[in-house]
């Protein structure tokens, strides 16, 4: 790990220590029913970040391969959640087996060996064409399009899109070596944006953005949280290949992509009749509840960076 990384992780740990302290004090002070729920939710999030930051520290310390394997596991759990709450038939089995056992390892192996061209088309072209073939051989036509569309969407979002986060490590940017910092930038801005939108929404929230899709999202939360997260992103310009104003625009792009990603996946979830991705395991949110914004923000950030700064 480089000195910059150690400095950054030190900063994150300091912020989390502060957040944990505030959370602890709040949990002692707040007495009202709704206030309790909010504070419990906040503390649960803080705990999740400690875990996340620990996992990231291990991944970053051990390098590219460990990071790639880690994201492959994230994709595995997200894909499992997605397909577990989607309706389907026994005849989908072959296509699902291919998605899990062939296309997840393939996509992440392509990152590990830095095969950039095939990485970009393995799922949108080859899996797109191959999975319905596996399905049609079973001879079942009922809901054929719907069943295949669900598997395709699941694979695109949970594997193809999420894999763009670790793929930042193989971006070729002239004069910039430490690609781990790009991944750090992405994850920090996405997570900060999520929580700041939540906090600003709780304090100032009046007007709902999409009451039927995601009742918790408000314009006040989006603008307040989004702009603050973008400002923090701009302040991190020195770890990126970007100038301060470029870093601000990149962070803004991540915020917007993350926001619409959360919105779209919330609508997907509701159309499947579920409230949480993790309803299968009671008491736990799903992995997809934390990765929804990343699945949209990662490809957008990857391609903007590649287009404007790549070799």
């Amino acid at each position: 790990m480089s000195d910059t990384m150690i400095l950054l992780f030190g900063g994150v740990v300091a912020i989390l220590l502060f957040a944990s302290t505030v959370g602890f004090i709040l949990s002692r002070r707040v007495t009202s029913e709704s206030g309790r729920a909010t504070v419990d939710n906040l503390n649960a999030r803080i705990k999740a970040w400690w875990l996340m930051i620990a996992i990231f520290a291990v991944a970053f310390a051990f390098g590219k391969i460990v990071t790639v394997v880690l994201f492959a596991l994230v994709s595995f759990y997200c894909l499992r959640e997605f397909l577990s709450i989607s309706p389907g038939r026994a005849e989908d089995h072959a296509a699902i087996v291919w998605a899990f056992y062939i296309f997840i390892p393939l996509q992440y192996w392509l990152i590990a060996v830095e095969w950039r061209t095939l990485f970009a088309i393995a799922i949108p072209v080859w899996a797109f064409l191959w999975l319905p073939v596996m399905s049609v051989l079973k001879g079942e036509t009922e809901d054929f399009l719907q069943r295949n569309a669900r598997i395709q969407w699941a694979l695109m979002l949970t594997v193809f899109c999420i894999s763009h986060a670790p793929a930042l490590l193989i971006l070729d940017i002239p004069g910039f070596e430490e690609n781990f910092l790009l991944l750090f930038f992405l994850i920090t801005v996405v997570q900060l944006s999520d929580v700041l939108q939540y906090v600003f929404g709780k304090i100032f929230g009046r007007r709902k953005v999409a009451p039927r899709v995601s009742p918790a999202k408000t314009w006040e939360g989006l603008v307040g949280g989004g702009l603050t997260a973008s400002a923090v992103g701009a302040g991190l310009w020195w770890i990126t290949p970007f100038a301060p104003w470029q870093a601000a625009l990149m962070a803004l792009a991540i915020v917007v992509a993350g926001f619409v990603g959360g919105l779209v996946l919330s609508a997907v979830k509701r159309s499947l009749g579920a409230k949480d991705w993790g309803t299968m395991i009671e008491g736990h949110g799903g992995a997809m509840d934390r990765m929804d914004s990343v699945s949209f923000a990662a490809p957008v950030f990857f391609h903007l960076t590649n287009y404007f700064f790549g070799a």
């Binding site: 499992r80 959640e81 089995h93 699902i96 087996v97 056992y101």
Partner: peptide, 10 residues
């Protein structure tokens, strides 16, 4: 019926 490996569905 007839499948070789289980698919990871909850």
């Amino acid at each position: 019926k007839g499948a070789v490996v289980p698919a990871p569905i909850n």
